[in-house]
């Protein structure tokens, strides 16, 4: 399985990869993207099975990336990993077609629960 991780912070991409490993999901192929626009392009070229995306990113944010993916016909499972976990954000994520929203700070258990819902 291939997972695309979109975050403008290299530190956070590393932490997400480490947390995936701690959650028992360390055997997947990982593709990294630096923002929503990069993620949009890499969904087309890399055909990931899941996108884990930050919300707040330069160039193109996560929610715009998700909207663009759905508008283009892509139904790739998409989950947010973001520092904002308010009910308003969760509602917007769900309405745009996100499978889940993991709020930072997160635990390996939160990742496992979320990934099991889409794998």
């Amino acid at each position: 399985m291939k997972i695309l991780i979109a975050d403008d912070s290299r530190v956070m991409r590393q932490i997400v990869i480490r947390t995936l490993r701690q959650a028992g999901h360390g055997g997947h192929d990982i593709v990294e993207a630096e923002n929503g626009r990069d993620a949009l392009a890499k969904v087309a070229t890399e055909s990931p099975d899941l996108v884990l995306s930050d919300w707040n990113m330069p160039e193109m944010n996560g929610i715009d990336c998700l909207s663009a993916l759905r508008a283009s016909g892509s139904q790739v499972p998409f989950g947010f990993v973001t520092s904002e976990g308010s009910e308003d954000m969760r509602a917007r994520a769900t309405a745009a077609g996100a499978a889940f929203l993991i709020a930072k700070p997160f635990t390996p258990e939160a990742f496992d629960d979320a990934l099991r819902s889409v794998l």
Partner: peptide
């Protein structure tokens, strides 16, 4: 340092009245 303040700011924002937006 940016990710640290992003996470703290995002969580503080979630405790306060919304809706509001968080900068980079």
């Amino acid at each position: 340092v940016g990710e640290l303040v992003n996470m703290v700011g995002g969580n503080v924002k979630s405790l306060m009245p919304g809706p509001s937006a968080l900068s980079l």
